[in-house]
């Protein structure tokens, strides 16, 4: 059986439609994810509208350097993921594997950077609780959002890295041909995780800088 015929699954008449089907399924999932993160953004907006000054004071203490490095890492990973997807569409197996590996590596670099940032935050006791160093008390609200939002984002990114790693193994062992629809879903999910970070960055890292 050729790679092309192996890639095409029932009930699709061609690969283009099959990819669209996977894309549609992933976008329906992402619509629910938009609401999941949206609830957090909405809560943040409500609390910030009532505690603007406290959020400014608290926001000054986030690690802007770590946040900026991580933004560049994620934007670059979106580039490598796009190239991997397009290489897969063109049936270029080797570039697909290389750019998939690069994408996963950039994701891991993001998590490593996040880990260093968390360590710095904990050293400064920037975790809501009895030893919290900032005042007024509402600064703890900001840091509560910081830990929840960045933590949930990191969980999503970890899932993305696991999926990319899984897809890499499937392609590498030729269990699944690269030009199928497997890449489509992984790529859309990866870009979504990047897009969520693009909202988190100004909300958590650019507050109170002026």
């Amino acid at each position: 059986m050729s790679d092309a015929s192996q890639a095409l699954r029932e009930p699709w008449p061609d690969l283009r439609l099959q990819r669209q089907g996977v894309g549609l399924g992933m976008w329906i999932f992402l619509a629910s994810e938009i609401l999941f993160f949206g609830a957090l953004f909405c809560s943040y907006a409500v609390y910030r509208s009532f505690n603007d000054e406290a959020f400014r004071v608290a926001g000054e203490h986030t690690g802007i350097v770590y946040g900026s490095i991580n933004t560049v890492l994620l934007l670059t990973s979106s580039l490598t993921m796009t190239v991997a997807l397009r290489a897969a569409t063109l049936e270029m197996r080797k570039p697909t594997l290389i750019f998939l590996a690069l994408t996963a590596a950039l994701g891991l670099a993001f998590l490593a950077c996040k880990g260093l940032e968390y360590r710095e935050d904990l050293k400064q006791h920037l975790f809501p609780g009895p030893d919290f160093p900032l005042s007024p008390a509402a600064t703890q609200l900001f840091w509560g959002f910081y830990w929840i939002m960045t933590g949930i984002h990191a969980v999503h990114l970890s899932a993305g890295i696991a999926v990319v790693g899984g897809v890499f193994v499937l392609f590498k062992r030729r269990i699944v041909p690269v030009q199928g629809s497997t890449m489509e879903g992984a790529a859309i999910y990866w870009h979504f995780v990047d897009a969520v970070w693009l909202v988190l960055f100004p909300l958590l890292y650019l507050v109170g800088r002026s």
Binding site: W27, L30, A31, I34, L35, G38, S78, M81, A187, H191
Partner: peptide
């Protein structure tokens, strides 16, 4: 990002509707 890297620009109309539905809610 969504238009040019997620290729929503070239996607079918149904995908635009689903993505738009998430934004609407």
């Amino acid at each position: 990002l969504v238009t040019f890297l997620m290729d929503l620009k070239e996607a079918a109309a149904l995908l635009h509707v689903v993505a738009g539905a998430g934004l609407l809610w």
